[in-house]
Design a protein around this nucleic acid. Structure first.
Length: 1043
RNA sequence: GCUGAAGUGGUGGAAUUGGUAGACACGCUGGACUUAAAAUCCAGUGGGCAGUAAUGUCCGUACGGGUUCAAGUCCCGUCUUCAGUACCA
């Protein structure tokens, strides 16, 4: 009895010693790294620096899913690799914690977004009682080598102090186009007061008037401020927005569907609003040029290039002909157009203005007035996106006015059309229907003449699209010229008569910087006499005020309009009650007490993320964004990882701010990210159940008329398995579905009531796909019916039409991973089931980093058993005890090791992480087969594996007797001599088809190889008596016999 | 419409410069161990045809052409999928 107990005890003890207990190991090392600050980066290291950055996450309440860590794991592998290579690595993490979801949650629950955000990061319980693990804990579980001492949160006042500071820097500067850089606004004031702006070359608003030094000095302070605002890098301007009066708020393009708000279906109109803008257009050319010197994926560079949209051409001015019905003053207008094809100027047969164009109301004749106004109004209801998506429907209205052709002096009818956008160029085009398909379609639709100005081109069916190989005709002085020459000549002639000039146009628009939201950075701005004033930077941060509800005010002001204390006292330099604001708030006026209203808008999401990479360098500095020394040492980000969806938002804005701050001397680099990699999205495999929906009207009818919901409410809730659906779709009869009806009295009763045999098939059932939670489905796509019934109340009384074997199958589809699609897989579950090392390796093993791929846990066991095999390699002692030998390794083992070193190093440098995981598997399989126990092989192997699977590597490293973390161990050095081959197995091909292989020494000459092959018995067999025409021998590669 | 990426076994994917297509892993099949299950280990696994078998043979990297001794890889055209998008004058 006693003996048995003793045996059992020994057995479990051995198990504990030899088995791979990943949970314990991972917890142990995560704690070790935290306690020893293993991954702390130092600003004063002697080592070379390397800065690896991930796009920081928005901490949503849904938590991390398996898609989030993909990029983090890849960058962590690289960061750890660089440490092994002797670099001082900066690998920080933080949170982009301002944003809409927290605000929406606040609107619903009344909980302060700061509180929600804190819980989402640090964990806790939300207002609805749901347990939230918190981002930090989830990230820690995966074993990242982040330097957490440098964490930043954009919603932290100590952080957004610097966002506000940057805003002030931009406000206090202007763009000198001649010097091609931003300069302090004080220097512009100096220029104005000595020379006016006549000779100035600066980026400014359209239509800024010219003035002399005397004019400037005579302007009032307010007039001067108004003028300066037209030059500042951030300025106030009237911008068009999607305004929803019902919701009292502005909507994004994708929140507007068919002219109404996506939520609630309220009407939306385009409305002008005074908002902050950023003069990014001043940097268009430099943003373009800068792409040359950064190592980014070409598609990403392409999309920035297209977004900036540089085009060369000319502006042409068309005089509007005086109209008899209008006074002579109203008649003297000019329409400016931008064209890339000034060579086609003689092909102009009409002009089109954007409906929003400011001249429309002034030039429209009385006869056309009603039509034009109706059209303008109709256009205002359509979103820009809608207008652009709708290519097929050509619409427009004639204004009744005519313009004069600058050369022929012929009258040209002026139309308005919504294919012309107000935001691009001048919002007006000179239409050349013979050379532009959209103009052509417009002209055909409205029966406008299409003069042909191309030599020998047929334009009866479509416009001419080949500009390079056609010569200009019917065009006076341009006749017979090529596109290039004609363009030059046309511009020359236009300039000569003062009707146009050469111009480079950019599609890029200035960026709107105001948001009518609560949960964002407040602007450090107050208004004196309606003019914006900056709060002095020494009084920053200006923190968000408390408000009672996170909604717009009744009169349509942004949420900050609800704040009771939201005025700036310029004497005390603090926020005070709104009640103290003097009526007029005009300086020096009666009752002016130096207290003025603060800005009610907040900054957009990209404000906090545009310069965060510099804050990590010196995150607790109170006196600067980061110290000069820190910035000198770290320069910019060496490797940046993130999704390609940020191509034209974050990545463009960030480059713009960095260039501006560089110009102003605050930064030492003018590009934030040297190398960038886009990780592909991990997609979810959604599961669908098919619910029966009842319709009056046949299945094939174009518009099935639904039964009013009241009458179908009583009908049973049917779900049918995907096999049943398949049968239904293949036969295209609903015989299977009729089975439901036959068997169910409720449906058949109902059916009888509405079914009219005269009409035939009036009542029908069609399937509607509904997302089911993927956790309710097993690997064979079978739904757990009971769990599904309990999942949500509406499924409680569902009836299931199963397959013949009684199972209920779902259909699968790959979609974006998202909470609303119920296809989210949580990394926490993977970590507890298989461990972080398995998760890390598996995510890398899934496929190339840049490629999008669906998440499927099916293959994870393969990676997990690899780690178990790795563990076993070090536990070959009695009863699986740890054991390595100090004996020299076999030749084969050294060869395995060194080819692994070479391959893994190459792979990491090329960010081909999936192939190195395979390489490790091969290495471990080989070493196991070789029964390798040699320390000289097993020790370097661990260093190779450690960037991918750091926990198991640390554990085995310490078992090998190392007192310190493996993270600083030098990367093994590849030695050619161990992998040198003397022989090569040559594939012998006949006419390109490999037939057999032949082992030959590598130092054989071409001729020797050829004779060896020709002498081989198999060669005769495959030649079957033919005489080879040619024998191709590539030493070390292949032999191919032709003939 | 435009721009970009991609298309390889049942599945994820590999093939670095044009040189043995399918590495590695999952799944599946068979076997060993076990009272059994799990775990582990071993073997097989692109498809067709012939053969008891060893093996032979043909086809095969979305489709149709082409270049080449040789093409998943290069060129021309087509189709499909995904992503982005702004009718950009």
């Amino acid at each position: 009895m006693a003996l048995t107990v003793n045996l059992c005890f020994t057995f479990t003890e051995t198990q504990a010693m030899s088995k791979y207990h990943f949970n314990e190991i991972e917890k142990k090392w995560q704690q070790y790294w935290a306690e020893n600050e293993t991954f702390k980066a130092y600003n004063d290291s002697e080592k070379p620096k390397y800065y690896v950055l991930d796009m920081f996450p928005y901490p949503s309440g849904a938590g991390l899913h398996v898609g989030h860590p993909l990029g983090y794991i890849a960058s962590d592998v690289y960061a750890r690799y660089k440490r092994h290579k002797g670099f001082n690595v900066l690998h920080p993490m933080g949170y982009d914690s301002f944003g809409l979801p927290a605000e929406q949650y606040a609107i619903q629950t009344g909980q302060h977004p700061a509180q929600t955000t804190k819980v989402n990061i640090e964990g806790g319980t939300d207002k609805q009682g749901t347990e939230i693990a918190g981002y930090r804990k989830q990230l820690d579980q995966i074993g990242f080598s982040f330097d957490w001492s440098r964490e930043v949160r954009t919603s932290d006042p100590n952080y957004y102090k610097w966002t506000q500071w940057i805003f002030i820097q931009l406000f206090e500067s202007w763009y000198d186009t001649k010097a091609d850089k931003a300069r302090p606004i004080s220097e512009l004031v100096a220029i104005f007061s000595t020379e006016g702006n006549k000779t100035l070359d600066a980026a400014c608003d359209e239509g800024a008037e010219t003035f002399s030094a005397t004019d400037w000095n005579n302007f009032s302070s307010k007039e001067q401020q108004e003028i300066l605002l037209k030059y500042r890098l951030t300025y106030l301007a009237e911008t068009e927005v999607n305004w929803c009066p019902e919701l009292g708020t502005v909507l994004a393009n994708d929140e507007v569907v068919n002219g109404v708000s996506e939520r609630g279906g309220h009407p939306v109109v385009r409305k002008k609003m005074k908002q902050w803008s950023m003069r990014i257009t001043a940097y268009a050319q430099r943003l373009l040029d800068g792409l040359q010197k950064i190592d980014w994926p070409q598609p990403l560079k392409d999309s920035q290039t297209n977004w900036i949209g540089r085009s060369e051409g000319a502006t042409v001015s068309f005089k509007v002909l005086p109209n008899v019905t209008l006074g002579s003053v109203e008649g003297s207008h000019n329409i400016e157009v931008f064209t890339t094809r000034p060579d086609t100027i003689f092909g102009v047969s009409f002009m089109t203005l954007a409906p929003e164009h400011e001249l429309v109301s002034q030039i429209t004749t009385d006869a056309q007035k009603a039509k034009v106004e109706a059209y303008v109004e109709a256009t205002a209801k359509r979103s820009e996106r809608e207008r652009m998506a709708d290519v097929k429907n050509i619409s427009g209205v004639f204004t009744g006015a005519y313009a004069e052709h600058p050369f022929t002096k012929e009258p040209i009818p002026i139309w308005i059309g919504d294919y012309v956008l107000a935001g691009y160029g001048t919002g007006a085009v000179m239409a050349v229907p013979c050379g532009d398909q959209r103009d052509y379609d417009f002209a055909k639709h409205f029966n406008i003449p299409i003069p042909n100005i191309f030599e020998g081109v047929d334009i009866s069916e479509e416009a001419n699209s080949d500009k390079e190989n056609t010569k200009i005709a019917n065009s006076d002085f341009l006749n017979g010229l090529s596109y290039k020459k004609a363009t030059k000549t046309a511009i020359y002639e236009l300039e000569k008569i003062g009707a146009g000039t050469r111009k480079i146009n950019y599609r890029l628009r200035d960026a709107v910087f105001s948001r009518q939201r609560y949960w964002g950075e407040p602007f450090p701005v107050y208004y004196k006499d309606g003019m914006p004033q900056m709060i002095d930077e020494k009084h920053l941060p200006l923190t968000l005020p408390e408000i009672d509800e996170y909604l717009p005010t009744e009169d349509g002001q942004p949420p900050l309009g609800r704040a009771v204390n939201w005025a700036w006292d310029t004497h005390k330099n603090e926020v005070v009650s709104n009640n103290n604001v003097a009526q007029s708030a005009v300086e020096g006026s009666k009752g002016d007490n130096g207290i003025y209203p603060l800005e009610l808008n907040t900054m957009p999401g990209w404000a906090g993320s545009s310069c965060y990479m510099f804050r990590y360098m010196d995150p607790s500095n109170d006196n600067a964004l980061a110290s000069q020394e820190a910035m000198q040492y770290w320069e910019n980000v060496d490797l940046y990882l993130g999704g390609s969806e940020h191509a034209t938002g974050h990545l463009l804005y960030s480059r713009f701010w960095v260039k501006a701050l560089y110009d102003l001397g605050h930064l030492q680099v003018d590009e934030p990210f040297k190398k960038l990699i886009n990780q592909g999205m991990i997609l979810g495999e959604s599961a669908f159940v098919n619910r029966a929906e009842y319709f009056i009207g046949g299945y094939d009818q174009v518009l099935p008329q639904t039964i009013p919901s009241s009458s179908t409410e009583d009908l049973p809730n049917f779900y049918f398995s995907s096999g049943i659906l398949k049968e239904f779709e293949e036969n295209h009869t609903n015989s299977s579905l009729w089975r439901i009806i036959e068997n169910n009295p409720m449906v058949s009763d109902y059916c009888e009531k509405v079914f009219d045999p005269k009409d035939g098939g009036l009542f029908s059932i069609i399937p509607n796909r509904i997302h089911a939670d993927v956790s309710l489905v097993n690997a064979s796509n079978e739904l757990d019916i009971e769990a599904f019934k309990n999942w949500r109340p509406e499924f409680k009384d569902a009836e299931f039409i199963t397959e013949e074997n009684g199972s209920f199958k779902v259909s699968r589809e790959v979609e974006k991973m998202s909470k609303s699609k119920y296809n989210v897989v949580n990394p926490d579950d993977i970590c507890s089931q298989y461990g972080a090392d398995t998760l890390r390796m598996y995510e890398m093993f899934l496929g190339p980093l840049e490629q999008a791929k669906p998440w499927n846990t099916a293959g994870i066991t393969g990676v997990h058993s690899f780690l178990k095999k790795l563990w076993k390699l070090y536990h070959t002692g009695a009863e699986g005890a740890f054991s390595v030998s100090d004996e020299p390794a076999s030749k084969d083992s050294l060869k395995t090791l060194h080819k692994t070193i070479k391959k893994v190093e190459d792979d990491i440098e090329n960010f081909s992480f999936n192939t190195s995981v395979s390489t490790f598997m091969i290495a471990v399989n080989e070493l196991t087969a070789q029964k390798c126990t040699a320390r000289e092989v097993l020790e370097p192997l661990l260093i190779l594996v450690s960037p991918y699977a750091p926990h198991i590597s640390e554990e085995l490293w310490s078992k090998l007797g190392h007192p310190n973390s493996i993270s600083e161990a030098p990367f093994p050095v590849f030695e050619e001599k161990h992998v040198k081959e003397t022989n090569k197995t040559y594939p012998i091909s006949f006419n390109g088809k490999m037939r057999f292989t032949l082992d030959l020494p590598l130092d054989m000459s071409k001729e020797e190889i050829e004779s060896a092959v020709m002498a081989h018995e198999q060669t005769a067999h495959y030649l079957q008596g033919r005489i080879p025409k040619k024998v191709i021998v590539v030493p070390g590669k292949i032999v191919n016999i032709v003939g």
